[in-house]
Design a protein around this nucleic acid. Structure first.
Length: 979
RNA sequence: GCCUUGGUGGCGGAACUGGUAGACGCGCUGGAUUCAAAAUCCAGUGUCUUCGGACGUGUGGGUUCGAUUCCCACCCAAGGUACCA
């Protein structure tokens, strides 16, 4: 037999699988279905490193296992191919992101193909393909055409809402909608203009336009994410950043807050991931309470009306008698109105200072206590006492109502604030000392000094106070969520265009039959000079609503723009007086257009748009009539196993659940959770190598000699270091020529590097490329080794040295098949085989792939020792190994005389009878410590064993004359002697 | 701070519902083969030891005949999250 030539074998079978479409899934089969999904990658320019395939290998093993088990398996792969890096590269080089993306995908595909995955490539999707994003745009339109009915607790068609409005106005409608939605009757509705109706409906739609506060950098002309701002200025360029309201598309995900929470109970997802979604949604129960503002005395400028109230949300309404002040967020609408003239200057200065700080900055700085008194007072709803109103930046405008009732005795932040500004701290707790800190333990709370709440526990008091508040019309029990609606607009080029144009300032959807609306070509990928998104650079980006096509911007009606005589001016200066332009992403010139040509939306969709339904699109990816056919979704239903990284916990994995629930509500899918089981594979970290450069000389010390020297560690490329941490000094000098003349101080003739586990990254020179490993050891070795490294979900360091272990296992396996004979297996052969079947099957079901690799090693070692040549044994073994090391398994299967692929060979059946033993080697322990072993038949009784053990000379030796107090015999397990 | 996960030889990691701690592999040591190397094979490898044994799963307690496993308190690490009212 030839040597194990993995290069030929792997190339041969990869070609075979591709040519025979071995892993093509069909949408209709008598077999039970199984849908195994790996999170699709963003095709980055760096290609795959050794950490990426971990999850793919696991999914692939499970998929192949399920095929052996007789399932019709859907195991697709695709690319999340819209994204920032390709756009940034375009900005730098001018190369179109589509080209960059195409090149990167090609590289990814080559790398993936080398690893022998059983993907059904005929179903590949790319989020940046118009044929794919047509359906992303379609979902957007479905969301636009839906509202959330709280009575039925689901999304419904907007037409239904319109017909209610026509008959009875909106008084009876229980909907999730904007806060500022006005009340109207049927007559009023019917009298509204079309534009007014559209404006009202926008407050109900599940995707809607809203003024959202963003970090705006005027100098850069762009919106910045929180982490792009450092110390209040832009990370790039150090320009000032302000908080600004901009009109952006938003998704009403908050409508689904409770269902997203409840759904977690019925899916098998990792606890940490569920916890982080739970925290992110942030449900808190309490009450909404209103305080009336007391009109200022003798104030002219800031006269407060009697109707002005401050609404607060509190989780501790039971402590309402402990309120000694209120705090508003500096951005709160009432601040300007209620501030007294004496406090005006101070308040304005504070508000301005706060606006300069990013929200992240404010939140990070927990220690500084700051705030200003407004001079105004509110009236306590029960005691009618005046309560001073402060502003403070510890109260966030974006959470709750942007106002709190401060109870210093029961909340540490309120306590600290009160101490700092000498505000009284009334104690309303029975027998609690609050001289040092606030008391926040709900469980042991007994309310005191609180009128009708005295003597009550937290629970009783909460119930009673809410009832009282409702009685006097000052509050109501309420559930509040931390989850915010999701901003859906991005000022980027490389993303899905919105299927939206604007008529008279109102968004209009493009009909499905005219989709996809394809990304326009642009000269530059940067925002325009006036700060519009990159699509503002497109010259052919207007919608001809009569002919339903994209046309030149020149054709848009210009009547709205006074003094403008050039078409391409249209999307640029809206104002001629030098005022700042509002960068909404949608043009405001469109107020009156008569020719049927309208401006298109300039924003694009965010990264998570394309990934929120891709798992369903795989079911029927080439369908041009629908996102998927009814037959396809009815057959595949949902994902049975989803494997991917935990970094998507509060992004993709939350948004996609939201979209699935929406699709469920509207009847497109039959499951409201799309992934029954999810596993987060752990990160593979790199093992960096360091040399120690002396700061005072030209010397570089080996690890063991660096003590006491003034050295700094320098990263060395891990490929220059061998398994014993020895550095190839000559190669290092070649790699970093600046060390050409450095003196390397060796220990025992070797230069030993320092090691440290870090995240794999180019800059740390610890990236290990799978291509090189495949070349040297083969894909099967890599697959086995990645699994052998440790539990799938755990993060673990990569160390290439260990791969020789699994590689020599494969060579042993190869050699085991050297002689194949058609003869009866021995009982030892069968025992080894069935032990292995049992363990491997259990391991796969438990995703404990690392231990099955050990099991294979033990199996091959035993069969080799038994000099096994039995074809029957080998056939079963080849199938067992095939999910893990498919190439060698196919080759061996062929050698065993099969002409068909091993892919669907039935999985071996475990039979207990081969493992039955007649005797057991009992561990004999004394006080729980095992000392020696004795063999007894398994059918020997408890008493007989006890007698035999006690009679044994080794037992007497151990006891040294003592009489045992007790003897525990667990038949089949252990004997323990106490005494 | 809070939530979650984890802590076992030189290293990655095994150990089912409490029942022989350290499977399997790497590394290391010695040996065989070889002119030599690679490859391969064999033996050994938790610590200490007076060679009888003693001690050992982050630390300290507890439950138990028996604890890596269960309970309590604490320490450390990783990830998530945060003036959330």
């Amino acid at each position: 037999m030839m040597n194990y030539d993995f290069r030929d074998i792997e190339a041969k079978w990869q070609k075979y699988w591709a040519e025979n479409e071995t892993f093509k899934a069909i949408n209709d089969s008598d077999k039970p279905k199984f849908y195994a999904l790996s999170m699709f990658p963003y095709p980055s320019g760096a290609g795959l490193h050794v950490g990426h395939p971990l999850g793919y290998i696991a999914t692939d093993i499970y998929s192949r296992y399920k095929r052996h088990k007789g399932f019709n398996v859907l195991h697709p792969m695709g690319y999340d191919s819209f994204g920032l890096p390709a756009e940034q590269y375009a900005i730098q080089t001018g190369q179109h992101p589509a080209i960059t993306t195409e090149n990167n995908i090609k590289r990814y595909r080559e790398q993936l193909d080398r690893l022998g995955f059983s993907f059904d490539w005929s179903r590949e999707v790319r989020t940046s393909n118009p044929g794919y994003y047509k359906w992303t745009q379609w979902i957007f339109i479905q969301l636009f055409n839906s509202w959330y009915n709280k009575s039925s607790d689901k999304a419904e068609a907007i037409e239904g809402l319109v017909s209610i409005f026509e008959k009875e106005g909106n008084a009876t409608v229980e909907a999730v909608c904007d806060e500022d939605t006005p009340n109207f009757g049927a007559a009023e509705w019917n009298a509204f203009s079309e534009k007014e109706k559209q404006a009202i409906l926008l407050k109900y739609r599940l995707t809607y336009l809203a003024d959202t506060e963003v970090n705006w950098c005027p100098a850069l002309g762009t919106v910045l994410a929180n982490d792009e701002i450092v110390n209040g200025v832009s990370e790039r360029g150090g320009h000032p950043v302000i908080r600004k309201k901009m009109t952006q598309w938003s998704m009403r995900i908050t409508a689904y807050a409770q269902r997203l929470l409840d759904g977690l109970n019925k899916i098998d997802w990792p606890q940490p991931l569920k916890d982080s979604q739970t925290n992110w949604i942030g449900r808190s129960e309490g009450a909404s309470v209103t305080f009336n503002v007391i009109p200022n005395e003798g104030v002219t400028l800031s006269a407060v009306e009697k109707s002005d109230t401050i609404e607060v949300f509190t989780t501790r309404p039971d402590t309402i008698f402990g309120v000694s002040f209120m705090t508003l967020a500096p951005e709160h609408d009432l601040v300007a109105k209620i501030t007294t003239p004496e406090q005006k200057a101070e308040v304005e200065a504070y508000v301005e200072a706060t606006a300069k700080r990013s929200e992240r900055d404010r939140m990070a700085d927990v220690k500084t206590i700051s705030g200003v008194f407004t001079g105004a007072y509110a009236e306590h709803p029960f005691t009618k006492e005046p309560v001073p109103i402060w502003i403070g930046d510890y109260v966030l405008a974006s959470y709750g109502t942007g106002a709190v009732m401060a109870v210093p005795c029961g909340d540490q932040r309120d306590y600290d604030f009160a101490k700092h500004y000498n505000i009284p701290i009334p104690n309303i707790f029975e027998g609690v000392d609050i001289s040092e800190e606030a008391f926040a333990d709900k469980e042991t709370t007994i309310i005191a000094n609180s009128d009708f709440l005295n003597g009550l526990s937290y629970k009783e008091a909460t119930k009673k106070v809410i009832a009282e508040l409702e009685k006097i019309g000052h509050g109501v029990g309420k559930v509040n969520y931390r989850l915010r609606d999701a901003v859906f607009s991005r000022q980027r080029y490389w993303g899905e265009p919105f299927p939206v144009y604007y008529v008279d300032g109102m968004p209009q959807m493009i009909d499905l039959e005219h989709l996809p609306l394809e990304l326009p070509e642009v000269e530059k990928y940067l925002p325009t000079e006036t700060g519009e998104p990159p699509l503002g650079n497109a010259t052919t980006w207007a919608w001809d609503a009569k002919n339903n096509k994209v046309v030149s911007n020149d054709l848009v009606t210009l009547s709205a723009v006074e003094g403008s005589d050039k078409g391409d001016e249209m999307l640029k200066p809206r104002l001629t007086d030098g005022q700042e332009v509002q960068h909404d992403g949608h043009s405001e010139l469109d107020s009156e257009s008569h020719e049927g040509v309208y401006p298109l939306e300039l924003n694009t969709m965010p990264g998570w748009a394309g990934s929120s339904q891709y798992f369903n699109r795989y079911m029927d990816p080439r369908n041009d009539e629908a996102i998927f056919s009814k037959e396809a979704i009815d057959y595949w239903q949902d994902v049975d196993l989803y494997i991917g990284g935990s970094e998507h916990a509060t992004g993709h994995l939350l948004y996609s659940r939201f979209w699935q629930k929406f699709m469920f509500d509207r009847g497109y899918v039959s499951k409201d959770e799309y992934a029954q089981k999810l596993i987060n594979q752990g990160m593979i970290t790199g093992t960096s190598a360091f040399i120690y450069k002396d700061l005072d000389s030209n010397k570089v010390y080996s690890k063991g000699l660096k003590e006491g020297k003034n050295v700094i560690p320098i990263h060395a490329d891990v490929s220059l270091v061998n398994a014993s941490d020895e550095l190839d000094v000559e190669a290092f000098k070649k790699w970093l020529p600046e060390y050409k003349d450095a003196e390397f101080i060796l220990e025992d003739g070797k230069y030993i590097v320092g090691r440290e586990v870090e995240k794999m990254s180019k800059s740390k020179y610890n990236v290990v490329n799978p291509d090189a490993i495949c070349e040297e050891y083969g894909a099967d070795s890599l697959r086995l080794y990645e699994m052998f490294l440790g539990p799938l979900e755990q993060s673990k360091p990569w160390n290439t040295a260990g791969i020789t272990g699994v590689h020599s296992f494969l060579k042993k396996l190869w050699r085991l098949f050297e002689v194949i004979e058609d003869k009866e297996p021995t009982s030892d052969n069968l025992k080894t085989l069935h032990k292995t079947i049992k363990k491997v099957e259990e391991d796969i079901e438990n995703f404990s792939f690392n231990t099955s690799v050990s099991t294979f090693m033990i199996c091959v070692n035993e069969l080799t020792a038994q000099k096994c040549t039995s074809k029957a044994i080998f056939e079963q073994l080849a199938i067992l190994v095939s999910p893990y090391a498919p190439h060698i398994a196919e080759e061996l299967w062929e050698r065993l005389g099969h002409s068909e692929s091993i892919a669907e060979a039935p999985f071996p059946k475990f039979e207990e009878k081969y493992l039955v033993e007649s005797s057991k080697e009992y561990p004999i322990s004394f006080n729980g410590k095992m000392r020696f072993k004795l063999e007894f038949p398994l059918d020997m009784g408890k008493d007989a064993i006890e007698e035999a053990v006690l009679a044994h000379e080794k037992t007497q030796e151990q006891l040294q004359g003592r009489t045992p107090k007790k003897v525990i015999v667990v038949p089949g397990k252990i004997v323990n002697i106490v005494g």
